[in-house]
Design a protein around this nucleic acid. Structure first.
Lengths: 165, 165
DNA sequence: CGCACTTGATTGAAAGTTAAACCACCAGCT
DNA sequence: AGCTGGTGGTTTAACTTTCAATCAAGTGCG
């Protein structure tokens, strides 16, 4: 059971394996996207003590009518579990960036509302974030490549988008 | 301080903002890659009780000479902190998939070695994983798009690749 | 209405990750 | 040999995320 060819290249049963080239791209994606996200996260933390996911939440809130979104909806938008949103909002609330409100139309509904302070922090952080996206991603792609990236990712989201947590 | 245009579109100071189109692509990437990774992770867990990062470690080990890699080198390959590798390897060791060995050339060096059981688990899991990559990613891109993806991600890794943890 | 059933959100504990302190060993220098 | 500084790895505690249980409020139906 020892002298097989490297796993990812072997041809086994009915599983369609990856070509060497496909594998190269896949690994580039794996490595590249982690390195990219880690860098954006690090930048945000250093400059504004915000994690990437906290930042994303603030962005969504800032764009919503009344700067407020219901917990479940927020969870769906950023693809986190409800539980995680509860905890994260609790932290952001403690930091004074978000407040909780009752939903008017549904007795159990809770809405997260971006405070003025939260908005101010976001306005600062956005500079850091956008600069990062530019220099780490946009600058590393031609217009066509960038467009291609968008198309691929949109199809993936279309295929896997609606999920249960 | 209330009636500004949406944050990500406004033009402020010297920060080069993102065009609406760039923003669309960036969000697609953000959403698409999380949804993709989540799905691959979920598949792996359900079928083989392995997380994506555990799987990646097993893959690296399986490809290395003697199926063993030193801790620090492993950490670098999968872009995790040393500490995280220590913990993860401890878990994999408890599960009997990896063993620890002393490094011959360096007294403090510790090597992680893939056991036969670990290899067997990996051989199973690889089917699940590869099938996932195919149906979620490869199938959602033309050959050109796929190539473009590879180029972008390789450039990013080139720019950000060597990091400290 | 009264019942079962689902959904929205929170809770608390377990699991995983990060951050910082720590120990052991290597390397270079005097 | 004896210092000194740096690297490899583990440990501990703090923090974040997940998992399962819980509770409250909505919905549908006899």
């Amino acid at each position: 059971m020892n002298n097989r060819p490297p796993l990812e290249v072997a041809e086994v049963n009915d599983t369609p394996w990856l070509s060497t080239e496909q594998q190269r791209v896949w690994r580039a994606f794996l490595g590249g996207s982690t390195v990219l996200m880690d860098q954006l996260d690090r930048d945000l933390r250093q400059a504004h003590s915000l994690s990437m996911s906290e930042y994303e939440i603030l962005v969504r809130l800032s764009e919503a009518p009344d700067r407020s979104i219901r917990m479940a909806e927020l969870a769906a938008q950023v693809a986190h579990s409800r539980s995680r949103i509860t905890h994260t909002i609790a932290r952001l609330e403690k930091a004074g960036m978000v407040a909780r409100g009752q939903c008017s139309t549904d007795g159990r509904g809770v809405t997260a509302v971006l405070t003025d302070h939260g908005f101010a922090v976001l306005a600062e952080a956005a500079h850091t974030h956008v600069r990062g996206v530019h220099t780490y991603l946009v600058a590393n792609a031609t217009a066509e490549e960038f467009e291609a990236l968008g198309r691929i990712m949109e199809r993936i989201t279309g295929q896997l988008g609606g999920r249960s947590f």
